[in-house]
Structure formats: structure tokens, C-alpha cells
């Protein structure tokens, strides 16, 4: 886990103190996007190379939908409760609303 912190911190420092060539510093997306695509390609390759896993793809997709929806719904619910407890000013009607506009 230490290397995660070190790599991430090195990136933060390189970005903060301009330690990279200007081309990379200005558009770090050029660095990240191809790497993300390469990772996704590898995941796809590993998935495609395992026929048993490939056959399970529809069921994996259904499970993924359930987990995603449940996670999002529970997060949204907790966020709404938090907002109403800790940010009461956000519920106050705006001046224009109070003026009936």
C-alpha cells in the first residue's frame, strides 16, 4: 500500500511544482487516458480469454446493475439526510421565492 501513496504523492508534487515537461504538465490527460484504455483492454482480454467467464457475462452484468443501483440509492439517501441535518440553510427558500417570483 505504501507504493500507492508514494506514486500518488509523487504525481501531486510533480503537478504542483511543475516537475514535468510542459507538454505533459499542461495535458496530463494524455498520460492518463491511454493508460486507462490499456488497463481496460487487458481486462477485456482476460475476460475474453476465459470462455466460462464469458458465458457468465450476462449474469455478471445483471449483478453489476444491482450493485450499482443499490450503492447509488443508499449514498443518495444518506447524503439527503446529511444535507438536511448539517446544511439547513440549503433548504431555506431564496429571496426571490419569498417575494413570490
Amino acid at each position: 500500500m505504501l507504493w500507492l501513496i508514494v506514486t500518488f504523492a509523487a504525481g501531486l508534487a510533480a503537478g504542483r511544482f511543475h516537475l514535468l515537461p510542459a507538454a505533459v504538465w499542461r495535458r496530463p490527460g494524455w498520460l492518463v487516458t491511454p493508460v486507462v484504455l490499456a488497463i481496460v483492454l487487458i481486462i477485456g482480454y482476460e475476460l475474453g480469454g476465459q470462455p466460462d467467464l464469458l458465458h457468465r457475462l450476462p449474469s455478471l452484468g445483471a449483478k453489476a446493475v444491482v450493485i450499482a443501483l443499490f450503492s447509488m440509492a443508499a449514498s443518495a439517501l444518506l447524503a439527503a439526510v446529511t444535507a438536511s441535518w448539517w446544511f439547513p440553510e440549503a433548504r431555506r427558500p431564496s429571496a426571490s421565492r419569498e417575494a413570490g417570483r
Binding site: A14, V35, I39, I42, G44, G48
Partner: peptide
Amino acid sequence: AGWLTHGAVRMPPSAETALFAVMLFGIGVQ
């Protein structure tokens, strides 16, 4: 590609880790 080659090409775990490190580094820079 994986289906076509039956997953014959094996990526060394170190390559995956290196890609992951570059990604983390890039996000840190961002």
C-alpha cells in the same frame, strides 16, 4: 482478442502494476 487467441498472451503482473502506477501518477499530476 481474448476470445480469438483463447487468452494465450499472458501479461506479467508487473506490467499491470506499472500501468496502474502511471495512472495514479497521472491523476496525481492532474
